[in-house]
Amino acid sequence: MRVDQLGVCVSLSISAALLGLTTQAVAEEQVFTGEKVHLGMGSAQAFVRSENGQATAVGIMLSADSLNGLSKPQKGRSAYASYLIKLPASGPKTVFDHIEINWEPKGHPPPKVYDKPHFDFHFYLSGQQARNQVHFKSDADSADPSQQPPAEQLPQGFIVPPGTAVNRMGVHAINPASPEFQGKPFTSTFIYGYYNKQLSFFEPMVSLDFLKSKPQFSEKVARPAAYAKPGAYPSAYSIKYDDQTKMYTIALEELKEGG
């Protein structure tokens, strides 16, 4: 082979390699959406974002007007409301079965921490039938050894304190180092949920005031060392407002294999 031919071959090889890298770097992103559900004066719907056929995020989209016209406490009525959100029928599957939005117009315990209007976004691993079987004698059952998850399934720094057992949900694991437990105002936080020692839901909690501030928030989440069920689990979560689409997104991001 002549030297000039060798140069052409080398050049073609480099071009092909660069082309391959470019093709690989440009990921094909798709967003699949579920059915809309009426919320406030607007709507909510689930979405799954994927790249090259693999789910990378699952979340909720809220129209801007969904924050208006929400139920308010009245004498003799709590005004608490829940909304079942189905995941998209098409697109890549995830470990999640469904989502439920809980509107807490008066907040909930502990006092001076979560007692302000906020949303609980529950991303459930189990189906609705299994959730209906979740029952406790009292909220203190979360302290019972039968409800304490194995250490490897609890993220570092998280605990399951007494008073967090809720029927049709499970027990709630919190991080005592979170800002709201250090005297700072509650804006958002991330909670893990369990039932009979098994991971059952992920829960971003977001205050109404924080949503109305039109945030551009994202944060890594602590992951347990192991998961009982194989699949891709979140490594981060985000709360964002898009001024162009007038939509809020609350998402579990960076889904990665675990367990």
Rank of each mutant, 00 (worst) to 15 (best):
V221Y: 02
G259E: 04
L62K: 05
T22P: 00
T23Y: 13
A173K: 00
M169V: 10
C9F: 11
A226S: 13
A236D: 12
D115E: 14
L211M: 13
P204D: 08
Y192L: 01
Y195R: 03
F119A: 10
R2K: 14
L154R: 04
F96N: 03
E257A: 13
S188Q: 10
F123Y: 13
A173D: 00
M205N: 02
E28P: 01
K240R: 11
V206K: 09
A165G: 10
A143F: 05
T245K: 14
E100F: 01
S218Y: 04
A151E: 13
V221M: 04
V26S: 12
E51Y: 06
F201I: 00
V3I: 14
A226C: 00
L67E: 06
P176H: 07
G59Q: 11
K184N: 13
D115M: 04
A140T: 04
L125K: 08
H38V: 10
Q156M: 09
E51D: 06
A89D: 15
K86A: 15
L21R: 11
L19K: 02
S200G: 06
M41L: 12
L208S: 08
L67Y: 02
A89E: 15
A173V: 00
S13P: 00
P111D: 15
A140S: 12
Y195C: 02
E100A: 09
L21Q: 10
L18H: 09
V10C: 13
N175I: 02
G76W: 05
F96K: 06
K75H: 12
G42E: 10
A165M: 03
Q216C: 02
V166D: 02
P109Q: 11
F47I: 01
P215M: 07
V37R: 15
F186D: 04
V160R: 03
E152P: 00
A57V: 01
T164G: 01
V166T: 10
G59L: 08
S43R: 11
K240D: 14
R223M: 09
G183I: 01
I60Y: 06
L154P: 01
Q128W: 11
D139T: 05
L19V: 11
